[in-house]
């Protein structure tokens, strides 16, 4: 089960620009992800997260170091094979919708990979039901909400039956409702299929749902660990321009105000639970 699915080995990448003083967007980053994990990649604006996503699927190649996916080193030869087993969802729901209707869009990757028609119909249907969008299959993109478009994008990735799903700020342009829908979809998918997920996000609340968090700071890996361990850094994360989850900030503020809470809480539910207990004790 615990096979490595993706790894970076001392990866450095600098964008090629006129500007000679350009610092590397990603600098000497090393990490490894196992099959079935849910990883959150967080960091401030410009910390190199999207660049890492592009290195993961061969839109960019490292200047130094090695990117390995599914056991193969990323190169011109392995590129298309790797891509066909990896799904990717981007930030802007509108700018990744290629098809004229929902089902056309879901089929796009299948068409590109030459999947026969009968199989395509079946896979499109399954993928749409996985994200609960089967009732919308004939809808045009401009009649869908942002959250629905992102779910279609996820279905488009799932149709290829990928081993790995990368979400690059897939929820950041959505309203709270749409964000919930997308996160719920990911959670359900992981339960039913054990898909490996890398979600890139600004939102530590979302990152708290992952099993492991990798924090990027100015192109370098800052820390890596479970959400609880990472959030323990508290003020350091805030200094890096990240917002701690609401429940954690609330816990800190309550503690400062003299409410003797026992634990660090990452979710609102847990905080509320303890507050109830506290209240009944008092």
């Amino acid at each position: 089960m615990n096979t490595e699915i993706l790894s970076f080995e001392n990866v450095t990448f600098t964008y090629n620009t006129e500007d000679e003083t350009m610092r590397p967007a990603v600098e000497n980053v090393t990490f490894s992800i196992e099959s079935g994990e849910w990883i959150a990649l967080v960091g401030h604006n410009g910390s190199g997260k999207s660049t890492m996503a592009k290195l993961m699927n061969g839109l960019l190649f490292p200047n130094e170091g090695k990117v390995k996916v599914f056991g193969h080193t990323m190169s011109e030869e392995t590129l298309w094979d790797i891509r066909s087993q990896m799904g990717m969802v981007f930030q802007n729901p509108d700018n990744q919708f290629v098809g004229a209707t929902v089902q056309d869009d879901v089929a796009f990757a299948l068409e590109n990979n030459g999947v026969p028609h009968a199989q395509m119909v079946e896979r499109v249907h399954v993928a749409l039901s996985q994200v609960k969008m089967e009732d919308y299959k004939d809808h045009e993109p401009h009649h869908l909400s942002g959250g629905q478009k992102q779910r279609v994008a996820i279905a488009g990735a799932l149709a290829m039956r990928p081993k790995l799903l990368i979400l690059d700020e897939a929820t950041s342009m959505l309203d709270p409702q749409g964000r919930m829908e997308v996160i719920e979809t990911i959670r359900r998918l992981r339960e039913s299929t054990g898909l490996t997920v890398i979600s890139i996000t600004h939102d530590l609340e979302e990152a708290a749902l992952a099993e492991r968090i990798i924090v990027m700071n100015r192109g370098q890996k800052h820390v890596e660990g479970t959400p609880a361990a990472v959030f323990n850094e508290g003020s350091e994360l805030t200094e890096m321009g990240l917002d701690l989850p609401f429940a954690m900030r609330m816990t800190h503020l309550l503690q400062e105000a003299g409410v003797a809470l026992q634990e660090e809480h990452m979710t609102e539910d847990k905080l509320v639970d303890e507050l109830w207990k506290y209240y009944s004790r008092a």
Partner: peptide, 10 residues
């Protein structure tokens, strides 16, 4: 963005 999304989708 669209070109990137299309390339990623093979």
């Amino acid at each position: 963005d669209l070109a990137t999304a299309m390339e990623v989708r093979g």
